[in-house]
Design a protein around this nucleic acid. Structure first.
Lengths: 365, 365
DNA sequence: CGATCTTGCAGAATCGTCCCTGCCGAGACC
DNA sequence: GGTCTCGGCAGGGACGATTCTGCAAGATCG
């Protein structure tokens, strides 16, 4: 033999081995397996059968090198440094990532979880993985990662409104203003006269837009804003802030909590002050957690529908990767939220109880 | 020029462009950037500076093809079909994946989320990504994915005890027997006379081992087992099963719920039957959710410490990939759990240390 | 019956990087 | 002063696929 093809250095079968075993050329094997070229069905079947018999798996690296497409989509949360998720948004991220993963897999892509890089370096994890595109969750205003990726020609789609300066291909976000306004209307209809807000100190778009919508609603209704802020990343601070809110002289008769644990925080605080929910205090919080369906009383939640967001983000990104939409102008997509109305925000429960509502056997304190 | 090096087909700078711009050879660039070869520092600095100026990023695909290492680790839950996670284990998976991601990134690897493949095919997502190793969560007894991967020489480490026939390189699991035994002892010490169990109908190792430990404990203590089972994937079924358990004629005075939502399920059921917690009913459930710290009363939980598990799994896998440990025999690692004792499992709150130890106020039956 | 077209496949050039091999000059050593 | 060693780099062959080009042999046609 002139070519040293016969040597086997690895246990894995390559396309050469398949070609040799099937008695055809490498080209024919590639064409047969990929459905290209002009081959009779008999040859195709034969090659496929031989490939199956040898347990042939094409090398992903070689294919990526040749075609320039890896089938991988990066997923990153640059806001919170090293940790890929922050604590208060577990359920949101879990749901969002789950939906995004499914959507990506359905179109033949896989998700890679990536960190916010500590510093620019030629050899961090980012440059070690070939990405077709990237999803960025809550990008900071001047995110260096996004700039770098875009400069390399990699499409980026963000979950959450990016700053105008960020050249993302598209973004998806909830209609936070409409959500908060609708929710406050709901509380007002249930009889709330003074609605309080439990919000965060950080300046991300979610917190900012929600708080602004609350202030505007108050302004339009002529109600004085009643709110407390706390650092959302600290779970203990939430309970303290809930307490502060209910201890105020201008105590609200309804509260909306922006973050997932606020429901239980507020419920516990209400119990400490002897306030009955929903009789004395109406309660809504933004959460994806199902536990609020079975608390006592059950708590009305605002769901951001992270699953829908994850799916939408992936669709837009893959469209951008495959050049489906017009790459010239970015695509915005505003997704609706869902208010899951439960006992905590209804003065008159829908079920007409036979027995008259009685108070429980006294407060322990 | 004899070589047609001058053509530029893509905007991205390759190693050739760096070599040309720096006036050195490709070898020198590679050596300078990778810290190999014998080069004076002046040359190294010069090459690095030129590479930075051109915005050079090495091609991950080419490197992977050449070196055989991709820096990617697969993460998969084969048990639940299409969806990567199931609903009842959100908090567990979120925590586990978060820790695993961090641990992998710290050692220079990134995680790829992969599905259970629908059927064997030459071109599913699995064969489109080059993996250095894979983490499998709760593998089924004869998981075809694991077999396939091992046959291809890709190390596999599992979260959860695999069947003896599965040739994984290592596994990590909680000490479920010790956890359940310790928890039941804790309840007995708190005054429980008849401890019930809320468990699942599926046959995964977690459910199986936990239930067996319960039965053995009952046997050793001479207590009749009192338990209800339900399909854990159905969140509504949990509430129904909790109701069934408390409606039994041999109603338990303490209950352990195996799944995350069981705490609120049981609390709601107890309220419906007018049972006070912890006075009439002691409660423990297995959960990673922080909401049980602020329910009323707060609920004692068994934490499986998924973060530790995720970290351990990744360490073992990367060790196997890099050939640190002995590949001949598999490594087992049994991780401890943590019982977070709260109000729901304590008849006497810990603050009343003044009064002498007395038995509780009799059984309700 | 020769020219053209179609079918069925093989050769070989990439893709971008790593790294083994080898060459050249300059000191070191006997 | 010749050989040895060693530092400093360049050449070029993989890695394993995709795919463009091209060449025979039969089919079709005027």
């Amino acid at each position: 033999m002139s070519h040293p093809t016969s040597r086997r250095r690895l246990g894995r079968a390559g396309i050469r081995d398949v070609a040799a075993a099937a008695g055809v050329s490498i080209t024919t094997v590639s064409d047969a397996l990929n459905g290209k070229g002009r081959l009779p069905d008999a040859t195709r079947r034969h090659v496929r059968e031989v490939a199956d018999r040898l347990g042939y798996r094409p090398s992903a690296a070689a294919r990526t090198l040749r075609t320039g497409k890896s089938g991988l989509i990066g997923l990153t949360v640059t806001t919170y440094g090293e940790e890929p998720f922050t604590f208060t948004e577990f359920a949101y991220f879990a749901d969002m990532v789950r939906a995004a993963t499914s959507a990506a897999l359905a179109r033949g892509y896989a998700l890679v979880i990536l960190p916010a890089p500590a510093r620019r370096s030629t050899f961090d994890v980012w440059s070690n993985v070939a990405l077709d595109g990237t999803v960025v969750i809550d990008p900071a205003d001047h995110d260096p990662v996004v700039a770098e990726l875009v400069q390399q020609g990699i499409p980026v789609v963000s979950d959450g409104r990016p700053a105008a300066s960020l050249p993302v291909a598209a973004w998806v976000d909830n209609d936070h203003e409409a959500a908060v306004t609708g929710l406050l209307d709901h509380l007002a209809e249930a009889g709330a006269r003074r609605i309080g807000l439990l919000t965060g100190t950080s300046t991300d778009t979610y917190t900012r837009l929600s708080t602004r919508a609350y202030l505007q609603w108050c302004d339009a209704r002529g109600q004085d804003p009643v709110y407390e802020t706390y650092p959302a990343h600290d779970p203990c601070a939430g309970a303290v802030a809930a307490d502060r809110l209910l201890a105020r002289p201008d105590r609200p008769d309804a509260v909306y909590g922006l973050f997932d644990p606020n429901g239980t925080d507020l419920l516990a605080a209400a119990r400490r002050y002897g306030l009955r929910v929903p009789e004395d205090l109406l309660l809504v919080c933004c959460s994806e957690s199902s536990v609020y369906a079975s608390t006592e009383p059950s708590i009305t939640t605002l769901s951001l529908k992270p699953g829908r967001i994850g799916t939408a983000v992936i669709q837009l990104l893959i469209d951008a990767i495959e050049g489906v939409n017009d790459p010239a102008r970015p695509v915005q997509q505003v997704m609706p939220t869902e208010l899951i109305v439960r006992a905590s925000s209804q003065r008159r429960p829908p079920r007409t109880t036979v027995s008259p509502p009685r108070r429980g056997p006294g407060t322990s304190e």
